[in-house]
Amino acid sequence: MMRRSTVTEEELVRSAVARLRAGILAIVCGLLAGTGLFVATMWLVLQGGKNVGQHLSLLRYFLPGYSVTWSGALLGFFYGALFGSLAGGLIAWIYNRVVDLRHPRKRTG
């Protein structure tokens, strides 16, 4: 479309590439994963029954000590927060490195 661009800010804004804040993404992912695993575990515990959470408890192969119990929910929160924040931080770190490679920052001033 042959529109006349007269707005320089438009170009400036559209050329800006977002960066991720690794710390913030780590905290957010950590909290989400930790809370998610805690709630999922508690949900199964509260439901009760035979072989409580037989599938979710398979996570014990990756998270030593984890089980679908009250104490397992707390431990699950810890593991979820730990691995979630690691994943979040890693995603942000990789994203920012790739952005830096593809869009080198211009020196200003």
Partner: peptide, 29 residues
């Protein structure tokens, strides 16, 4: 700040980041 608020995400970079982390998680599991 305003420029940052309207900044676009780099699709390749976000793809690379999520791809790398997903690959690592499955590999390590």
């Amino acid at each position: 700040l305003i420029r940052q608020a309207f900044a676009r995400f780099d699709p390749v970079a976000l793809g690379s980041a999520l791809g790398s982390v997903a690959a690592l998680i499955l590999l390590s599991s």
